[in-house]
Design a protein around this nucleic acid. Sequence first.
DNA 1: CTAAACGTTCAGTAATTATTGAAAGTTAAA
DNA 2: TTTAACTTTCAATAATTACTGAACGTTTAG
Lengths: 181, 181
Amino acid sequence: MNLSPKIENFVLHCGEMGSRWGFNRTIGQMVGLLVINEHPLTANQIAEALKISRGNVSMGIKELQSWQLVKVHHIPGDRKEYYAPNGTIWDLANKVFEERRKREIDPTLTLLRDQILDTANTPEEKYAQEQMQSIHDLLETVTKWSAELQRLTPEQLQSLMKLGSSVSKVIDLKDKLLKKS
Amino acid sequence: MNLSPKIENFVLHCGEMGSRWGFNRTIGQMVGLLVINEHPLTANQIAEALKISRGNVSMGIKELQSWQLVKVHHIPGDRKEYYAPNGTIWDLANKVFEERRKREIDPTLTLLRDQILDTANTPEEKYAQEQMQSIHDLLETVTKWSAELQRLTPEQLQSLMKLGSSVSKVIDLKDKLLKKS
DNA sequence: CTAAACGTTCAGTAATTATTGAAAGTTAAA
DNA sequence: TTTAACTTTCAATAATTACTGAACGTTTAG
């Protein structure tokens, strides 16, 4: 398991990105490695390629499974587990979004709702609640939108983009149609 | 500068979120504190409220300024600097997105483009390039979309959401209109 | 000019997070 | 049942990241 410079470069970059997207560097590299390889890899191959311990691979895989990002393959007559990405690039990105929504946005929305419902005792609390309401509305809007986008196939999205239409134009169209009907 | 339990709760939560959004916990708390307070705060007030050192506040403010998230106020006859959020909640969110795009997405796109243009020497590299192409397309699509969304006011977005229309319906409409014309 | 009031920097240290590797767990072939 | 081939776990430790506080810089009032 020796990586070509090109592929190594990509894998290292995935590591840097991974640490900004909710994983650590090593786990980012693992995803990169799995994505870039056409065939599933064993834990030992991963350890060798990334020069990390076998135990670390095991923990990384566990973490990735909690994000639903990898799936396990088996080869008849072979007891090793072979790991591969759980879906297309698009699927993986969706899963990360979805999981982060669950872990970060949803608890925040709950907290904000609780605070907003509580009565404000002072002018400071009044202002605080208004701000929390803004954050709440923003998060709700963004999550609803991303849910909408996730429903589309990448092809749908791209064909829309390629039409060169801006979303605001589409919204205008929508508004016009609604007024007519 | 003593925080009410309600507000402290919010600020602590911002700390947790901050560490998942590209800052550290303390900086997240600083943003929370500034956002929740109607009036700008001095560095000492921030240090006292969050129970951190004066030096740490200075570093945090510097970091937040590099993200364009705070602005400085001055009161005539007062040498202290007063810090406040640089815009509405919506503005702040946009700035974070924008900054992360610059720092993370753009360099990734550059790397991917370089690799894709390079000639593939082996079948593995061929497959690797295909995957990189997918990632490239995904990132481009997502950034273009988020740019579109950023152009809209929160009101526009929310009114659209409240119509109960899914984006795919809007796309269908768009397609129909294009065929007719 | 001096002192007071503020902001910044950064070396040292504390806190947190990631990794290793040895031990224990699991499975299945012989 | 034993053994070999694999995976998992986790305490110890390494690596990274964040924080403090003292020293220094700057500005202005007296």
